[in-house]
Amino acid sequence: MSLPAEFHEIAKRVNNWGRWGADDEIGTLNLITDEVVREAAAAVRSGRRVPLALPLKQDGVQSGMIPGRVNPLHAMVQINQELFGPGTVACNDDIVTMGLQAATHWDALTHVSHSGRVYNGRPAGTVTPHGGAEFGGIDKARHVVSRGVLLDVARALGRDRLDGGHAVTPEDLEAAEDLAGTRVRAGDVVLVRTGQIQVYLAGDREGYGYPSPGLSLRTPEWFHARDVAAVADDTLTFEIFPPEIEDLWLGVHALDLVEMGMLQGQNWNLEELSTACGETGRYAFLLSAMPEPFVGATGTPVAPVAVL
């Protein structure tokens, strides 16, 4: 089944292949310049730090909908073990097995492909069983520190949480921008709050994933026009699920990651941040969201922190 004409038309309008050279592997992260970071640091007023990651635990957000994407399985391999003989210092060590996109995470540009290509026109076959992503792996995204802007769509629309079938539109983003009192600009990392994470926090793992509000097919053009560096939200699927166009699954993923080369994140807990921004009336902050540099990985856990 081929992708619909509407998808290809949007893809042409947001395509960034070659914009930063034929060998580029980080896409819109190129927009986070030294000047952008300096201005982001100037956004810090109180020094209040707000963590945005979910706990990594065995009963996490994954319900089995995506095969192989397991919640973190934690095990101890040493418990008070005196490695160097009786009476010496004892050690505790642990291991974990998990899907790299299991909880709060970034998707690498190679997380999806379409029409046989990944970002910058590279063949989809550059992702291999043993080496992972030979090009555009998450390890290439070495510095994700910039100005963060919370677009609290739910609050801007007068709701605590968007309905499961709500497709977030550019008009919704602009309403949230008006609420924030700041304009999204080049190099920003945009955090879109729908309130959907509340469903998971209340203990309904199945209801959290389906149906879900999320970004619509119209949003990639908005982010492209603003030269946004990366986008994350508080849902399992990032985009509206089920999709707006029948059988066009992960269409927003393909536009953001493959065509635009824009990092995207899911399962970010934006509830405390929403409260903090509402209390202070400030929706822009310094955001540190460094990916774990798994070589060749197509995604990675992240523990982002907003500094107000």
Rank of each mutant, 00 (worst) to 15 (best):
E6F: 04
H8D: 07
E9H: 07
G18P: 08
W20M: 09
W20Y: 15
D23G: 13
L31A: 05
D34I: 02
E35Y: 02
V36R: 13
A43G: 05
V44D: 09
R45W: 04
R45I: 13
S46A: 12
R49V: 14
V50T: 15
P51L: 06
G60S: 05
G60Q: 01
G60H: 00
G60C: 02
Q62V: 01
I66E: 12
P67D: 04
N71C: 04
N71S: 05
L73R: 13
L73V: 09
H74P: 00
I79L: 04
Q81A: 10
N92K: 00
A102T: 10
A102E: 06
A102Y: 11
A103Q: 13
T104Q: 09
D107H: 14
A108I: 02
V112W: 01
V112M: 03
R122C: 08
G125T: 12
G125N: 10
G125V: 05
H130T: 15
G132M: 12
A133D: 05
E134W: 08
G136L: 03
G137C: 10
K140E: 12
A141R: 09
R142V: 14
H143I: 12
V145Y: 06
L150V: 02
D152R: 09
D152P: 08
D152H: 04
A154C: 03
R155S: 15
D160Q: 14
D160M: 05
T169H: 04
T169N: 09
L173I: 03
A175H: 06
E177C: 03
G181V: 11
G187Y: 02
G187A: 06
D188A: 13
D188F: 04
V190Q: 00
L191I: 03
V192C: 05
R193C: 07
R193I: 05
T194G: 09
Q196P: 02
Q196Y: 08
I197C: 06
L201W: 00
L201I: 05
G203W: 04
R205N: 13
G207T: 11
G209A: 06
Y210D: 15
S216W: 06
S216G: 15
E221A: 10
D227E: 12
D227G: 02
A229E: 03
A229M: 07
D234A: 05
T235F: 14
E239W: 06
P243D: 07
E244Q: 14
E244V: 12
E246Q: 06
D247A: 09
W249G: 01
V252L: 04
H253V: 01
A254Q: 15
L263E: 01
Q266I: 06
E272H: 03
L273I: 00
G278E: 09
T280M: 10
G281Y: 00
Y283N: 00
F285M: 10
L287N: 08
P291H: 08
V295A: 13
A297R: 07
G299D: 15
T300R: 03
P304V: 04
V305A: 11
A306V: 05
V307I: 15
